[in-house]
């Protein structure tokens, strides 16, 4: 009987979880330029001033795979899977 009530309680307590979401922030390829402009880093990317957080390759519009906030700063991850899988 206790398990029955546990199940009922569990069902209702977990119900809100069904609507909660883990959101993955994403930028579509063609919106990338817009995004970096809004972050004010377009020029720095064009001049190759940013380096990949893991392999230190200069970040370009072609190889930029992810932007992450780390230690209060923006860090960049290049499109090599070796680097992305280190996140």
């Amino acid at each position: 009987m206790k398990l029955f009530w546990y199940k009922i309680k569990n069902f209702f307590s977990k119900l809100p979880d069904r609507f909660k979401k883990t959101s993955i922030k994403a930028v579509y390829d063609s919106d990338l330029m817009n995004l970096v402009e809004s972050l004010g880093i377009k020029d720095s990317i064009e001049t190759g001033s940013y380096l990949c957080k893991f392999c230190a390759t200069p970040i370009t519009f072609e190889n930029l795979q992810a932007i992450q906030k780390d230690g209060g700063e923006l860090k960049f991850i290049c499109s090599r899977l070796e680097c992305f899988s280190k996140i």
């Binding site: 979401k21 994403a26 930028v27 919106d31 809004s38 972050l39």
Partner: peptide, 12 residues
């Protein structure tokens, strides 16, 4: 929780 893709076009 369920996954959801949140498209970002600009951000601060």
């Amino acid at each position: 929780k369920r996954a959801s893709i949140k498209w970002i076009t600009e951000i601060k």
